[in-house]
Amino acid sequence: NNDALSPAIRRLLAEWNLDASAIKGTGVGGRLTREDVEKHLAKA
């Protein structure tokens, strides 16, 4: 759900053309954090 994404995370996902549903969020309530996105990018 994009409503739970911060503007910074939305921008990062758009910049790298990533799908938020493909990344497991570790923040409060399962929210994506910058670290989650960076770890996903490191694996790719």
Score class of each variant (00 low, 15 high):
L41I: 15
A4Y: 14
L12T: 01
I9W: 04
K43M: 15
D36C: 01
T26N: 04
A22D: 14
R10H: 11
G30S: 04
L18M: 06
D36V: 01
G29A: 09
D19Y: 05
G27H: 01
A44Y: 15
L5W: 06
R34A: 12
N2M: 13
A20Q: 06
L12M: 08
L18W: 03
T33P: 01
G25K: 05
N2K: 12
N1I: 13
L13H: 01
A4T: 11
I9K: 00
E38D: 06
G30T: 02
R11S: 11
R34C: 09
S21A: 13
R34I: 15
R10S: 08
G27D: 04
A22E: 14
R10C: 13
L13A: 00
T33N: 03
L13N: 00
K39D: 09
G30F: 01
H40V: 09
S21F: 08
L5M: 10
L5N: 05
H40C: 04
G27R: 01
V37E: 00
G29Y: 04
G30D: 04
G25N: 03
R11D: 15
N2R: 10
K39N: 14
R11T: 13
S6A: 08
N17Q: 09
D19L: 09
L13V: 05
A22G: 06
I23Q: 02
A22N: 11
E38F: 15
T26H: 04
R34F: 15
E35M: 08
A44T: 13
G29W: 05
A44R: 11
D3F: 04
A8Q: 10
D3K: 09
N17F: 06
A8E: 15
A14K: 11
A20G: 07
P7D: 15
N17P: 03
T33L: 08
E35V: 10
S6W: 08
R34D: 09
S6N: 06
V28I: 14
A8H: 09
T26A: 03
L12I: 06
R34L: 15
K24E: 11
L18G: 04
R34Y: 15
L32P: 04
N2E: 14
K43P: 06
A44F: 15
H40R: 02
I9Y: 02
E38I: 14
D36L: 02
A20R: 05
V37A: 02
R11W: 15
H40N: 03
L41K: 05
K43Y: 12
A20M: 06
E15G: 05
V28K: 12
T33C: 05
A8R: 05
